[in-house]
Design a protein around this nucleic acid. Sequence first.
DNA 1: CTGTTAGCGCATTCAT
DNA 2: ATGAATGCGCTAACAG
Lengths: 335, 335
Amino acid sequence: MVTLKDIAVKAGVSKTTVSNVLNGNLAKVSPCKAKLIQELIAEYGYVPNQTARSLSNKSSRIISLIVYADRDKNVLSDPYIALFAGELLRQLQKRGYFGMIRATNEYADILQNLNAWNAQGVIFFGTLDKDIREMQDRTGIPFVFTDSYSSVRRINNVGIDDYRGGMIAAEHLAQRGHRRLALFAPGLESGSDLDKQRIAGFRHALGRYGASLPEDHVMLADPCRADEMARSLASLPGVTGAFVTADIAAIELMRALKRLGISVPKDISIVGFDDIPLARLVTPGLTTIRQDITQKARVAAEILERRLDDPSRPNESAILDVTLVQRESVGWVQS
Amino acid sequence: MVTLKDIAVKAGVSKTTVSNVLNGNLAKVSPCKAKLIQELIAEYGYVPNQTARSLSNKSSRIISLIVYADRDKNVLSDPYIALFAGELLRQLQKRGYFGMIRATNEYADILQNLNAWNAQGVIFFGTLDKDIREMQDRTGIPFVFTDSYSSVRRINNVGIDDYRGGMIAAEHLAQRGHRRLALFAPGLESGSDLDKQRIAGFRHALGRYGASLPEDHVMLADPCRADEMARSLASLPGVTGAFVTADIAAIELMRALKRLGISVPKDISIVGFDDIPLARLVTPGLTTIRQDITQKARVAAEILERRLDDPSRPNESAILDVTLVQRESVGWVQS
DNA sequence: CTGTTAGCGCATTCAT
DNA sequence: ATGAATGCGCTAACAG
């Protein structure tokens, strides 16, 4: 393997000079030598060793993508995470950084990963609590959180308008005559703020139509227990529609309903959340609240990059909009 | 950040001794000192710096996952790749390695990535040609290819029995009375060996039933042009079924057929390939040839690990089996 | 503009 | 069983 030193020798200059042209410090190098060195670099296919570089100046160009989940889970099997992580990888690569995906729910693990690789930044998916904030302070590298509702001001965050998403779902159902509704949320037991917002928004908008969502009509969504969900839903008298705050659960629910002989949207209407690619492909197509994952990833990368270029910049928070995507899973109620 | 040296000072020993306990050379350290050192490591939360480690002994523990695709593509938006890569990440992590995903179709790019990080191994998704084999020789690190049909003996490869997959698809259709069939393959224009095998197997088994697949009934599958596919299929007189060698294209085709008012499986039967999670969720459920991606990833990781532990081991090739998954997209033909 | 020097954190001889 | 010394490939003062 050819090293910087090799190039220096071939060019008859010192390592410093080569290092300077490598890092764009052309002001410190005479044009002719610079040209010679660049030619040699190309000729020998020399590529700087990142591990050496990060040792010497702590600029590893590695960004940790931490997915807060069981360490032994294939996190990319979740289409939402895969899409988001893939887009992040792409954005980082474009900016000359290297994304390193890690699934874990142990803080020691995260810290270890960051230290081991001198990670320069972190993009975090999942629950944010005080431990992780403390970690941010201790490491001193920029963190970008996603979908965080932490009240702490000093964090970077990119999220979506979940409350409004809930409102849009409610309005759509209400405008089509639905008055008795149910709601399923996967984050119910973990007390996810995300779902709390969506639920609150949903309730709020419902109120304006004289519709309501009784407390016991709010249930846990679990894609692995779709049959239970379907039975619960069917047992609720007079309910004509449900808002499921994650597409993947909504889709499993629709299938379970079909198995029970209940037709969507004729008997029951369903609205999902996320607009994963799958939502378009099922039958009936899932009407859902769309969030733009590509944009989310781009904004996260941009925020991080600004922090990387200038660590003194204030933290920033971006809230992206959501939109209704109408497909076939919502019907009209005759009144 | 606490370093190895810090620990050595606290323990009142040399760096060498700490290094030895770190690397499990307990034979060279007195038990009591070893214990002390381990306690200090835990107490201070010391974690060895990988970049330094890889500089000093070239053991970066980084494995490059190279996806041969446009550099500017979100490769994880493909559910098959996301699932596979995610599983690979998990397997590598479990073995103490770090997977680094990179999408590119430029060899210079790959080489650069490998050199920059002292990658210790490569798992390669996609076309394999002589350039990449040459790269393998030049770098001297183990490569594991996936789904390669290269005739070169000196490579590691993990693939599936594509030929048999084609046969199974044909048998299933033929046994249900289908005699006039069509086939769509995404790799047709790129001359993918994978698809060639599947097609050959399909043809072969068809012959045993007196059924045939005329040359002009073999067409290019493109999920983005499903409508064209559907029209082509509909224009073929007497054809009652089609084998589509990728689920994602099969699913888009089914939707396009529905838009044309053609019913699956009543008018046309469809068999896919891969069994991506989606196949179960669409309506009608897609009958398909299943490959076990989790197993594939595990085997790839195992092969690589063996090569890493003992570089002199001979190359090996694993061919995994495929199975038929019956759902609802294939019907009977009345004769 | 250019070269010399030192050091990043670690593993590895080679002595002891 | 332990430590001192050397080097991995690179960057960053510093001095010319």
